[in-house]
């Protein structure tokens, strides 16, 4: 059957011509979007530029946006996106500058990888044979090593969209791989660096990276785990960690959340200027009847507290 692709074109040597171009190609049930794009490039229009290589979802070259969402086009079948032959729109990956057509500049991506000290740093004497470690400690890391650095998560990260300094899901997932490696001797330094701004606390938990990752790496889950680890090793003085602690404290006490307490705690109670800066919003909210002075509670806060005690005590 026939399938129309609407492909974003951009040529830096002729920027005025930028826009969408439609191509109609013959496809079957098993045709992938990459197959369709290759047909375009090889049989219809050699001017179309894109990166692609392995065709088997392992090289990470072909992440691009399909109907607005980042996908590895080699493992996306045409009929999974357009079951009734709807036109498919292909854009380059987001959050990275476009070089030409579907090719984007990955330099910021690799620079961030470099920024997390992306290599094992063992301490102490090097054993003659392998480092001994249980399979349990190691094998779960394969889930992160599964990352093929395709950039799909970076493309659709909602924080990177507003702040290009954020380390981003891919580099942070890579950082987790070293933080959790029992052979690495720099866990605390690593967490310290990740605890700084642009690090783990800047993630909004929006789950875009979890949704679009073609390899189930779950970058956001790794970021959350590193937040917890950072607090565990003693990095408690960030507004992020205070936020989490305060949240837990108030739920433990009342069974429910208390937003006013949260606002005060997260800023740090000594952070007077920042608190004052919040005041206009806070006052306006109170005038409108928001932020009740008295916290609401579960009808059985003690039972909720017991769940806390039992699980935190494990």
């Amino acid at each position: 059957m026939e399938q129309t692709l609407r492909v974003k074109r951009y040529d830096p040597e002729n920027p005025g011509s930028a826009g969408y171009q439609e191509y109609t190609v013959e496809v079957t049930d098993t045709t992938t979007i990459l197959d369709a794009l290759l047909t375009v490039r090889e049989e219809m229009d050699g001017t179309l530029s894109m990166r692609c290589s392995c065709r088997a979802s392992i090289c990470g070259s072909c992440a691009m946006r399909v109907n607005g969402q980042a996908k590895l086009v080699c493992k996306t079948r045409v009929n999974s996106v357009a079951p009734d032959g709807e036109t498919i729109t292909i854009d380059p990956a987001g959050n990275m500058p476009v070089i030409k057509d579907l090719v984007v500049e990955f330099k910021p991506f690799w620079d961030k990888m470099r920024a997390i000290t992306p290599y094992l740093q063992p301490e102490g004497e090097v054993p003659e044979a392998e480092y001994l470690a249980s399979d349990d400690e190691m094998v779960h890391l394969v889930g992160v090593v599964n990352c093929i650095q395709c950039g799909a998560c970076v493309s659709d990260c909602t924080v990177l969209e507003v702040d290009s300094s954020f380390l981003g899901p891919a580099a942070l997932a890579k950082a987790y791989r070293f933080v959790k490696d029992p052979r690495d001797g720099h866990q605390k330094d690593r967490l310290g660096a990740l605890n700084e701004s642009s690090g783990v606390w800047d993630c909004t938990r929006c789950m875009q990276c979890v949704e679009v990752c073609p390899k189930d790496v779950n970058p956001m889950g790794r970021i959350m785990a590193m937040r917890d680890l950072a607090m565990e090793v003693g990095y408690n003085n960030t507004s992020g960690s205070r936020h989490t602690e305060s949240f837990a404290r108030t739920v433990k006490k009342n069974g429910r959340l208390d937003e006013t307490r949260l606002a005060v705690d997260s800023m740090g109670i000594f952070n007077i200027p920042a608190l004052l800066a919040e005041a206009p919003v806070g006052l306006r909210a109170i005038r409108k009847g928001k932020f009740p002075w008295k916290a609401h509670k579960s009808s059985e806060p003690n039972k909720v507290k017991r769940v806390f005690e039992k699980i935190e005590g494990e």
Partner: peptide, 20 residues
Amino acid sequence: IIELEHMGVIFSRNEDGQLG
């Protein structure tokens, strides 16, 4: 192999914690 392991490759392991 040992060099690769020392560099950081996460090879699968056996019950003794050695490479499997």
